[in-house]
């Protein structure tokens, strides 16, 4: 973990309530896709944890949905606004067991961390395949960015006004070597039950500190209680109690 000051490089509205924020600062602690950062926002007491969508040695990109006061303030941040941010939090996805044809399944604001993961898997020589689920056409984002990486992308919408109608589990390919997923818990559960390989699931929980001290975000696993912020947010399929 590292504490640092980041400044807003750009802020872009992707859908009605989803924003892409690029922050400049010291990203040296970010080591894996699926990790998160914890942002201090003036006027609020607790930091706001947001998963990393992408990063390089100068910037980190996060994509977030406005769900409350914190994300609302972030969605209005002017260029060059400075934020005190903790980086390098959480375990992130492991590339080790991906195999040749890993499957990436994202839902809603669970999609962003899979983007950097997809890039890392491509660098490793894997051939990832991507399934992204949204409620409706107006909420779809990042599809073009995934396609630009040259990977097969299937989009599902619950309303059926774009892509394949249904849930992500209605569009899972037959052949894959491992899976990675992030999204709302009902989706994670459906993916868990619909997949026939091992895999990794990224969870969300209300956090106090984000670095393992307060025990606010604990969850029960097959291996005992885990802190989502420290031993997660990514859990192995084998650890999940479903």
């Amino acid at each position: 973990m590292k504490q640092g000051i980041f400044s807003v490089k750009s802020l872009e509205r992707l859908t009605n309530d989803v924003y892409k924020l690029v922050l400049s600062g010291d990203t040296s602690e970010i080591r894996a896709a699926g990790q998160f950062i914890n942002i201090k926002i003036d006027g609020l007491f607790l930091r706001r944890p947001i998963s990393v969508c992408d990063y390089n040695d100068r910037t980190v990109t996060v994509i977030f949905k406005v769900v409350g006061k914190g994300t609302e303030i972030l969605s209005k941040a002017a260029e060059n606004t400075e934020f005190d941010i903790l980086t390098g939090l959480g375990n992130g996805y492991s590339l080790e067991n991906a195999g040749d044809r890993p499957l990436l399944v994202g839902g809603g604001v669970g999609v962003p961390p899979l983007y950097n993961l997809c890039k890392k898997l491509l660098e490793k020589g894997c051939r990832p395949q991507v399934v992204l689920g949204f409620n409706q056409k107006s909420e779809v984002f990042l599809e073009d960015e995934f396609k630009a990486l040259g990977v097969p992308v299937t989009v599902t919408t619950v309303l059926g006004d774009y892509g394949k109608k249904g849930f992500v589990t209605d569009a899972l390919p037959k052949d894959y070597t491992y899976f990675y997923t992030c999204g709302p818990e009902p989706m994670l559960k459906a993916v868990y039950h619909s997949t026939n390989t091992s895999g990794e699931l990224s969870f969300e929980e209300r956090m106090g500190c984000g670095f393992g001290a307060c025990m606010g975000c604990s969850c029960k696993t097959k291996y005992g209680s885990f802190r989502i912020c420290k031993q997660g947010p990514v859990l192995l399929k084998e650890a999940v109690l479903w």
């Binding site: 007491f45 607790l46 914190g70 929980e205 209300r206 106090g208 307060c214 606010g216 975000c217």
Partner: peptide
């Protein structure tokens, strides 16, 4: 059970 953390004006609630 979680959630067991909540934001407050100048503070927080915990029910760890």
């Amino acid at each position: 059970p979680t959630p067991r953390i909540a934001e407050c004006p100048d503070g927080m609630l915990n029910s760890v």
